[in-house]
């Protein structure tokens, strides 16, 4: 059997229906970046700890470096590129990152944004401790986290008002 034999998968990414052939060993992060050219999803460790590759798969947060692309067959994915509205209106968490200086180099940012978007959408009443726990799986070397936490609190407040 040819181990590099590709398989056809179909999935929905940021609202767009995608069909591609992938080789079994390719992880979802590489698939998004290389095959779909959605390079917003970053790879900081490829062993599941840094969180920069986090995407939302069927509504839950996953590390895209720890899933095979093949496993995403049939899934609905949301990546950092899909957080804003189709008309370009930013997600409250994106706005808040800009407002509160929630990013410096921006490398951890996509994983932070997807994580926080999902967590706050599920629970807009989340407090600081909850936020710190939610991003304990996302490493940021630049910010010291505080402004990220502030951004998340502010986005949560916005979303509570919006709801």
């Amino acid at each position: 059997m040819d181990v590099e034999e590709k398989r056809r998968i179909s999935l929905v990414v940021n609202g767009r229906k995608i069909e591609r052939e992938v080789s079994p060993r390719k992880h979802l992060g590489d698939f998004l970046r290389e095959d779909l050219r959605l390079t917003g999803t970053h790879l900081g460790c490829e062993h599941g700890v840094c969180g920069s590759c986090t995407v939302i798969a069927d509504g839950v947060l996953v590390r895209s470096c720890l899933m095979l692309a093949i496993q995403a067959d049939g899934m609905v994915l949301r990546t950092v590129e899909g957080l804003a509205e189709p008309d370009g209106t930013l997600h409250p968490i994106q706005e808040a990152f800009h407002e509160k200086h929630g990013l410096q180099c921006g490398f951890c940012t996509p994983g932070m944004l997807t994580t926080l978007a999902a967590v706050i959408e599920e629970n807009p009443s989340i407090d600081e401790a909850g936020i710190r726990e939610a991003i304990s799986g996302n490493i940021c070397r630049c910010t010291g986290y505080e402004t990220i936490v502030d951004a998340a609190l502010s986005a949560a407040a916005t979303m509570r008002q919006g709801a």
């Binding site: 969180g51 590390r63 720890l66 994580t115 726990e133 799986g137």
Partner: peptide
Amino acid sequence: VGHVQTRSR
């Protein structure tokens, strides 16, 4: 156990 992003899988 791990984090929200690992417990999901």
